[in-house]
């Protein structure tokens, strides 16, 4: 660095030289220290770079530990980055090193196909999904507003927290669940729109990610947090003061994961482990519904009924009921014409 400083100042007489030298110093330094930086696109045998949305971090912490205890996972080492699903997907697209990617919603994955993730990512037995959940309504401990379902949260004076669909995957799930409630009970899109408009009027905060929304809610904002079942269970496991209600009609959340094209064998083995019964059991313990049939969840601490942690709602709408993600994205979440986008922007 000393050379740069000397150069920069000696040439202080000449305007352009100063700028050039300072710029070179910056980039030069950047270059020097890059050797100590990330390995970048590590395809290496035992290294697994996880880039995931933030909610399942506790599950992935447990999964990593369990995986390194298996014969295949012995010697594997992990690095992990967590953030809002959309942001993480964009980061990988922009070059963040990733071997294993997990997102809240499928479109964040399809952005990476086919350049970074192979087309066949959803061809496996779990169709590329690693965890399920349902949309729930988290409430203050003891449920002081006596919220039982969707119709209770659009009453005047009920304050709702739900993340921003611009960056958060869970926000989309939440809003689709709300929309579906109107859709099912009152006449397709028109019913969905009518319900969502009322709901939008009650939203008081739109944090950037599902986790941030939980944080916001727990710090005292709002009466209801629209969230995932697993997020609510996870928060309760960590001793956070909240309860949750599974409405009679909810939405099936399906979270995809995949290995990138740059991934090494360890990452592939890790994905296989995550999709296996052993992996799914760990997911279940953290409040996620298994994607494999026949995996017994066992006791799940933090669930409303730990012995029967994942009751099936009366009605469970799936993304395919609305035509799949690409149809949903263009119809409901298009930046200018999406039905849900417009309602949300209208409410400010």
């Amino acid at each position: 660095m000393r050379t740069f400083r000397v150069l920069g100042l000696r040439r202080a007489r000449k305007p352009l030289a100063v700028l050039t030298v300072a710029g070179l110093a910056a980039i030069g330094l950047a270059g020097c220290s890059s050797s100590s930086g990330t390995s970048g696109g590590s395809g290496g045998g035992s290294k697994v770079a996880i880039v995931a949305y933030s909610v399942p971090k506790p599950a992935y912490d447990a999964l990593q530990a369990a995986f390194t205890g298996t014969a295949q996972g012995k010697g594997a080492s992990f690095s992990a980055s967590y953030g809002a699903s959309g942001d993480q997907s964009r980061a990988v697209l922009n070059g963040q090193a990733a071997d294993y990617v997990a997102f809240s919603i499928q479109p964040d994955m399809t952005k990476l196909v086919p350049d970074l993730v192979d087309k066949s990512w959803n061809a496996g037995p779990t169709k590329g999904l690693v965890s399920d959940s349902v949309v729930v309504l988290a409430v203050r401990k003891g449920n002081p507003k006596a919220i039982k379902g969707w119709d209770d949260i659009i009453k005047p004076g009920v304050k709702i927290v739900t993340p921003d669909p611009g960056s958060s995957g869970s926000a989309k799930w939440n809003l689709l669940a709300a929309f579906a409630h109107g859709y099912i009970n009152g006449g397709a899109d028109a019913g969905g729109e009518a319900y969502l408009k009322k709901l939008a009027a009650n939203i008081v905060s739109k944090p950037e990610s599902g986790s941030k929304a939980t944080q916001t809610f727990l710090s005292g904002t709002g009466d209801v947090l629209i969230s995932y079942e697993n997020e609510a269970i996870g928060a309760k496991q960590k001793g956070q003061p909240l309860d949750y209600v599974i409405p009679d009609d909810s939405f099936l959340i399906e979270n995809p994961a995949a290995v990138t094209k740059a991934a090494g064998q360890s990452a592939k083995d890790f994905l296989a482990f995550v999709e296996s019964a052993a992996g799914q059991k760990i997911f279940a313990a953290k409040g996620y519904r298994p994607v494999l049939a026949g995996v017994a969840a066992g006791q799940v601490a933090g669930a409303n009924d730990p012995a029967d942690p994942f009751p099936t709602p009366k009605t469970l709408t799936k993304i395919n009921d609305l035509g799949g993600w690409s149809a949903v994205n263009s119809k409901y979440f298009d930046k200018s014409n999406g039905i849900i986008t417009k309602i949300l922007n209208g409410s400010g």
Binding site: A30, S33, S36, A91, G95, Q96, D115
Partner: peptide
Amino acid sequence: FRTGWFGPTLRDAGINIIFAPPGMI
């Protein structure tokens, strides 16, 4: 790396900027 102006050039030169300490600096 993928879409930036200098990104691909820098990547070929083996220099990481974004998602590495240099970018943070």
